[in-house]
Design a binder for these strands. Structure first.
Length: 456
RNA sequence: GUGGUUGUAGCUCAGUUGGUUAGAGCGCCGGAUUGUGGUUCCGGAGGUCGCCGGUUCAAGCCCGGUCUACCACCCCA
């Protein structure tokens, strides 16, 4: 029996209109990646299960799509009871497979190794708007270099991508070492990750919300007061006096002798110094030192980045990243530092659609449609078709002999701007009537040379 | 993973306290118009009311389950 067809929860089909727009986004990002010297990499959709488990925290492990064992192996695992029923899993992000690849190929790669990767990832999450179980990530990472020039370059790269997409954004930059300094200052080193995760919610729930969350999680009232007081002293990042935050923090860290905090401030200061001295020319897409930016992933150890759209109603991040000092350590390669960013193409799509930023000419690649007047005329058009195609003009011949209005409707729906009308009259005269869609005209008769000149 | 909302034609939605052949607009197809569409007029097709079960003489409407989309947590792109 035929069942009603459907696709799995949280997945989508992309029709021609959507695909043209998606390719525009992917193409723009890829061009910039290449321009900055990053090289392409693809890894398999599936990895061995143990490559992925334990890399994303407890919550992350739950969201990994596992692939059931097959056949006798599955039966043995079921009977054993202690064995995993899965041997492989779909990739959860692009960073861990990249780390695995680097370790496996460490002797062949030229370090620092700069790679970009544009592929889908899968998460067994509960879907919501703008949140899917299959989505694309566009990553660029450089591994094997601790230089802050990499951070500077990635900030420039982010600005250039959003410049090219004509989307206004705000780039937030912070440094994990500053956050660790605060943790030390507030005497919560034993619960650093937990504390930072709660701090990260400030822009969403506000200072009072953060305080409440801390109390709920049994942080002492002194810690709550200290953090609230700290937030009270921070000048908003968009304020011109923002740099004063740097001095305020610097004094605090110096007085308490918090070395890691001072180190973080220095690193961040160096990045901003380079950006201010000509590394970037972006005006609309401003970079901010956001002292409250924390980001959830706990493998970040230095700079952290996050980009939010400055237009439209979607305020969650559309691009993010940071430095991780020891990502390959779990695969046996120690001391390999990397820094990378990831563009959320699906969310960028939603923002561009809402703010009407897709170029209008994305409609159809076909420029010219030959109307079909019957067998003899169609045969004649095949030759003309070859000529325009040789001239590099995308064109097609309507395959069936149907009434002209229907052929016009086809052209209109497909966004084809011109229709060539070649009936018996034109055929005998060696001419073509060229009609421009949308114009209220019958069209002009012309030679093929003239037509090609017009459309080139 | 926890709690909640939703589902009627291709699309957007009506559908009375449960009552006989489930409607509209837009779109689609055909004709007026056999070589000029997008306007107008006329006609037409298209629905197991998400799916499965239950209550009832009777269910699009009530109840249970399930799937989907969505919302809030959680987490994230």
């Amino acid at each position: 029996m035929a069942t009603k067809p459907s696709i799995p929860k949280g997945t989508r089909d992309f029709g021609p209109v959507e695909m043209l727009r998606r390719k525009y986004i992917f193409g723009t990002i890829e061009r910039v990646f290449q321009k900055y010297g990053y090289l392409p990499l693809e890894t398999p959709a599936m990895e061995n299960l143990d490559t992925l488990t334990g890399k994303y925290g407890e919550e992350g492990d739950r969201l990994i799509f596992k692939i059931l064992k097959r056949g006798a192996e599955l039966e043995r695992a079921v009977q054993d009871g202690s064995k995993s029923l899965a041997a492989e899993a779909l990739r959860y992000d692009l960073t861990v497979p990249f780390a695995r690849y680097v370790v496996q190929n460490q002797n062949e790669l030229a370090f620092p190794f700069k790679r970009y990767q544009i592929q889908p990832v899968w998460r067994a999450d509960r879907p919501q708007k703008g949140r899917y179980r299959e989505f694309y990530q566009c990553d660029a990472d450089v591994i094997g270099s601790t230089s802050l020039l990499n951070e500077v370059e990635l900030v420039c790269l982010m600005q250039e991508v959003f410049d090219a997409l004509a989307l206004k954004v705000k780039v937030h930059v912070n440094n994990r070492k500053i956050l660790l300094g605060l943790v030390e200052l507030f005497n919560v080193s034993d619960r650093a990750t937990e504390f930072i995760t709660i701090m990260d919610k400030r822009d969403k729930v506000g200072v009072e919300g953060v305080a409440e969350e801390l109390r709920k999680n049994n942080f002492s009232s002194k810690v709550v007061d200290d953090l609230t007081a700290f937030y009270g002293r921070i000048i908003p990042m968009e304020d011109e006096r923002g740099p004063q935050n740097h001095r305020m923090l610097s004094t605090m860290f110096e007085e308490a002798g918090v070395a890691v905090g001072l180190q973080g401030l220095k690193e961040l200061g160096d990045v901003f110094y380079a950006l201010a001295n000509g590394a970037t020319k972006a005006v609309d897409n401003r970079v901010f030192h956001d002292l409250t930016l924390a980001r959830g992933l706990d493998y970040y150890t230095g700079a952290i980045f996050e980009v939010k759209a400055a237009e439209g109603t979607l305020h969650s991040s559309i691009c993010g990243g940071g430095r991780y000092d020891d990502l390959t350590g779990v695969f046996g390669l120690k001391g390999m530092s990397g820094v990378g960013i990831s563009f959320g193409a699906d969310r960028i799509y939603d923002v561009l659609l809402e703010t009407n930023k897709f170029p209008t000419e994305l409609g159809s690649s076909t420029k010219l449609l030959f109307a079909n007047f019957g067998e003899k005329e169609a045969m004649h058009c095949l030759k003309l078709l070859r000529q325009v195609r040789e001239a590099g003009i995308a064109s097609e011949l309507y395959p069936d002999q149907v009434k002209l209005p229907k052929q016009f409707t086809y052209a209109e729906k497909k966004g084809i701007p011109y229709v060539a009308i070649v009936g018996e009259t034109e055929m005998n005269a060696g001419l073509v009537t060229l009609k421009k869609m949308g114009a209220n005209e019958k069209g002009d008769a012309m030679t093929m040379d003239e037509l090609i000149q017009r459309l080139k």
